[in-house]
């Protein structure tokens, strides 16, 4: 049985992943901003087989509140061995190009709050000598593109942070998994026209659980994004800058 804390638990990918954990009889602590939506999801996970489905409210940009929420989750579940960080916003790129406040807010949510949460989690897991850290980054972090480089660069920071953290925690028996989903049909991407490359949250969730179990380092979901991003990364900059992506 895993004891799992999920940050951003009302997101579609997180909820789909939590259902898979629940069906296996794991214990979960769901963290998010909206207490009533968390309660609805917790009840569902309880019916699906979760041994425990606790909830805690947190605005991730309230950095001072992070430690207390981690303490609460440890108390509720009798310790922690798995963390899934799934919160995020899809930035409004054009707004971020004119407003530094918007830019900073997106970085607070998508980059800094993730690193801030990982700092105490990494220390606790290193001390206990076991644990699985899984963080949802994005294929958008693999290369900045004009259409969403604020979001993409925040995710790139997370990806780089995780790769360093992975090296540091390697000898402590703690695994760090970087999850890079491609296009996923969720409320966050509601306004996009959907094509063949789009995946359902449940598909991503299955990939996440499998990657955590296998203690993978980096996983593209679905797998074909590894190839797509390989091509996108390999385009020389003098060509790339003329593309409109």
């Amino acid at each position: 049985m895993r004891r799992i804390i999920i940050i951003g638990a009302t997101s579609a990918i997180a909820e789909a992943t939590a259902r898979l954990f629940a069906a296996r009889g794991d214990a979960l602590c769901l963290v998010g901003r909206d207490a009533s939506r968390l309660a609805v999801i917790a009840a569902d996970l309880g019916v699906r087989g979760a041994v425990r489905a606790a909830t805690a409210t947190l605005d991730v940009t309230d950095f001072a509140a992070h430690a207390a929420v981690l303490d609460e989750a440890e108390r509720e579940l009798g310790g922690l061995d798995t963390v899934l960080i799934a919160h995020g916003t899809l930035s409004n790129q054009s707004e971020c190009e004119t407003s530094v406040d918007a830019l900073r807010r997106e970085y607070d949510i998508n980059a800094l709050s993730v690193m801030a949460l990982l700092t105490p989690i990494a220390n606790r897991f290193a001390q206990q000598g076991f644990g699985d850290i899984a963080v949802i980054s994005s294929v958008a972090g693999d290369r900045g593109r004009m259409s969403n480089y604020v979001y993409g660069s925040a995710k790139a920071a997370v990806t780089a942070f995780l790769s360093g953290l992975r090296q540091r925690l390697q000898k402590s028996g703690v695994n760090v998994l970087t999850i890079k989903p491609g296009f996923v049909d969720t409320p966050m991407t509601r306004d996009f026209p959907k094509g063949a490359l789009w995946a359902q949250p449940d598909t991503i969730a299955q990939g996440i659980v499998k990657a955590i179990e296998k203690r993978r380092s980096v996983v593209y979901l679905p797998w074909f994004w590894l190839g797509i991003m390989g091509v996108i990364r390999s385009v020389p900059e003098f060509v790339f800058k003329r593309l409109r992506l």
Binding site: V40, A43, D44
Partner: peptide, 12 residues
Amino acid sequence: LCTRGLDRFIAF
């Protein structure tokens, strides 16, 4: 009004 997102169990 697409209801597939209302897919939670409440109690059993």
